[in-house]
Design a protein around this nucleic acid. Structure first.
Lengths: 261, 261
DNA sequence: GGCCTTTGTGAGGTCAGACCATTAATCTGA
DNA sequence: TCAGATTAATGGTCTGACCTCACAAAGGCC
């Protein structure tokens, strides 16, 4: 951990250079695999490729683009890790690489790594979660989609199971919050909410194990869950938001090491 | 765009299987490159690797892990695209692969691709942006960090330049909003805000070109910017938030094709 | 001695080609 | 007709080679 002279922190995205003078363009010098990504991305941007569509076989794509298969694979791996592409071996129908749409895992890994690198503090992440979930609660209370709320209730019931294990409780807890976001009808809310919870899963879990009376804490959290759900079901949007914020702040304050303060 | 039978959508993260019975674990069957990523990630999680630290040379790492260099490279490419690692050639000081911390570009590409794939609707993204920026405005008004606010003012002044080009205005606009998030002191807010704006850059730009009186719209937006900044500077937090939300909704409504409604 | 040039070395970047594992489609024979 | 064997196409992995680049050390010039 020798935080030495390497200046590798904090590029700003899309920020115009405030300085005047001859603004030299950075002359990107993209690497080969970046060019392959760009080629695929362009097809996506222009609508030539959509979810479910197949990409050419790696060997074909390499030939078409005039690069080696290794470079194509590096590009596809990146797109795969972003949840944009899915590959499977074999032959015939279903074999090959396809455009996919699985952003959750990618978001989760991204957050998990950058939180571990202390790029994003846990407080920052928690604050983001609060804002998202406040909004989710309001939207969920307003729209009141019955099917979506049923899923929330299912998770609530799961957590009501007597003698439930900490792990099961925690997973149902995550699912509960994600289900509310889902009920709000905003996919980005829901994916971000899930990613934040999942990326903190280990920390939450180990933090929970250090709590004195785990059953009491779980009971308290669960009673808050019921309060939130009541407010959502009866359409008290602002109250649902307030209870959600209170709930998250309460949990953060009770789990040692999860909060910087 | 043949959205056929491929079931590649919407995995849920960390959601416990509600079903009972013998719950078979998916027996991950991780690929080699995933194992390499895991190996690096573990070093990061345990704190053995932090920002600025060097990784072993690709060839060394391949030997140590007992895999081929190709697999190591695929893993490093993924970490690179996530902004977790930075590589440079050459020799001696500064050569090799290092742990880095550059999440913005990764977030931007992620959002850009998934928005293009209509995984996240523009409305979803805009709503997220509103919630984040409301919060940023409140925090910025409360904390009132002079240095940070100076940057906001710099961008404001840039946009006041007479006869400014659409492109310059748009970039300064992005920088303005990012600077406010920065002033809020939440890195995730600021990176997300920047990523959202940047990932929509092309759409915003082409949308703007179809507006009748561009100068009038820019003037209107800029007057809203001034209003927001006034509220922040004088510590009227709630008003700053309200003006920010109004500003974003106004812009979305005026840019054809940016809003689904 | 001090500065410049040359050479060496080690790192990532790219490529070509081979082989393996898996799977669907096809062929073959009872 | 149908079960089994074969084939072909695809991603997965590995090997080893060569390139470029940038610093570092050695050497040569003043």
């Amino acid at each position: 951990m020798n935080n030495d002279t390497n200046e590798v922190r904090r590029e700003q995205p899309g920020v115009a250079e405030a300085a005047a003078g001859p603004d030299w363009k950075p002359v990107s010098r993209s690497s080969t695999y970046e060019l392959v990504i760009d080629a695929v991305e362009e097809q996506i941007m222009t609508g030539s490729l959509g979810v479910g569509d197949p990409l050419p076989a790696e060997r074909d794509l390499a030939t078409k683009l005039g690069v080696s298969r290794a470079s194509v694979r590096e590009a596809l791996r990146v797109l795969d890790s972003l949840g944009v592409v899915r590959s499977s071996g074999g032959s015939g129908r279903g074999a090959g690489t396809f455009i996919a749409a699985m952003p959750s895992a990618a978001l989760t890994r991204f957050l998990r790594l950058h939180v571990a690198l202390t790029n994003f503090s846990i407080d920052d992440v928690t604050e983001t979660r609060i804002q998202l979930e406040r909004s989710s609660a309001i939207l969920a209370a307003t729209r009141a989609d019955k099917d979506a709320l049923a899923e929330v209730n299912a998770q609530l019931a799961m957590m009501d199971t007597p003698g439930i294990s900490l792990e099961t409780f925690n997973d149902a807890d995550t699912a509960f919050h994600v289900a509310i976001a889902q009920a709000a009808g905003n996919q980005l809310f829901s994916d971000l909410t899930g990613a934040i919870r999942t990326s903190l899963r280990k920390s939450i879990f180990s933090s929970f194990s250090r709590v004195d009376d785990q059953q009491a804490l779980m009971a308290k959290l669960q009673s808050q869950h019921h309060g939130i759900m009541d407010a959502i079901t009866t359409g008290r949007a602002e109250e649902a938001a307030a209870l959600t914020e209170e709930h998250i702040r309460f949990a953060a304050s009770r789990l040692p090491g999860l909060s910087d303060t």
